[in-house]
């Protein structure tokens, strides 16, 4: 799931303060679940923002709405009838949703209320952990299910780097486990150390340019 957190109120205020009518749109998907941009968070942000703006002499009209997903146009039709009535839109979705919104309403300024932080897992309610940087060439098969891109401070494919401390933490931060120390021990326990005994060649970093993906069975449908 995509994990996001709300931007500081002052930053949001600076984006929207000069627009009189602002519609704050939450997302019913990931950002609802990670407690950053669902219906409750839309209400809280609107309340706080209104108070702040009123205190500074503005007279904003700040409304809220939530669509089930901002990354799929199938969910936009109710919003289509509303956006024209506002001077700006604030989106509480991830960066994907904000961009979809901005593309859908090119004449309306669309602002992000959140910082999109990572692709993560739910450890517990309100506690999320990054586990994948969507590198596009997954190596988990060889690394015992531990991602070296995300969990090694240097993103090494041939580790460890020599900076592993005796207690198994990384030289970069004493509270961070060394990913390669963990990879080594997991593979050793599974009798698979052979997986990391050959040197991996340098890889193509596919995430340097914008990616898109059409699944094999659909290639014909979208061709040309």
């Amino acid at each position: 799931m995509i994990i996001a957190e709300r931007k500081p109120l002052d930053e949001i205020k600076e984006m929207v303060k000069d627009y009189r009518k602002v519609l704050n749109v939450g997302c019913g998907g990931c950002t609802s679940i990670c407690l950053a941009g669902g219906q409750k968070e839309v209400m809280i942000l609107n309340r706080d923002l209104k108070e702040q703006l009123l205190g500074e002499g503005y007279s904003p009209v700040l409304d809220g709405f939530v669509i089930e997903r901002q990354c799929n146009y199938d969910f936009f039709d109710e919003l289509d009838n509303m956006v024209g009535g506002y001077d700006a839109v604030l989106s509480m979705a991830c960066g994907v949703g904000v961009q979809f919104m901005a593309e859908r309403y090119p004449e309306t300024p669309v602002f992000p209320a959140l910082n999109t932080v990572f692709c993560g897992a739910d450890r517990n309610i309100g506690w999320f952990e990054e586990n994948c940087r969507t590198c596009g060439e997954c190596v988990l098969a060889e690394t015992g299910g531990i991602c070296p891109v995300t969990r090694c401070a240097k993103g090494l494919f041939n580790g460890p780097c020599g900076g592993t401390r005796l207690d198994g933490t990384c030289e970069v931060d004493k509270d961070t486990p060394c990913a390669w120390y963990e990879i080594y021990h997991r593979l050793q326990a599974q009798g698979r150390l052979g997986n990391i005994l050959t040197v991996k060649p340098p890889r193509q970093w596919q995430n340097q340019t914008r990616r898109s993906l059409v699944q094999e069975d659909y290639k014909q449908r979208y061709a040309g």
Binding site: G38, Q39, E68, D74
Partner: peptide, 22 residues
């Protein structure tokens, strides 16, 4: 079907009913 469920959710939300993720 999902278009109708989406609309139903929207009506629920308009009356303050939505999932409580925390």
């Amino acid at each position: 079907i999902p278009r109708m469920i989406d609309f139903t959710r929207s009506i629920c939300r308009s009356q303050g009913v939505y999932p409580d993720h925390d």
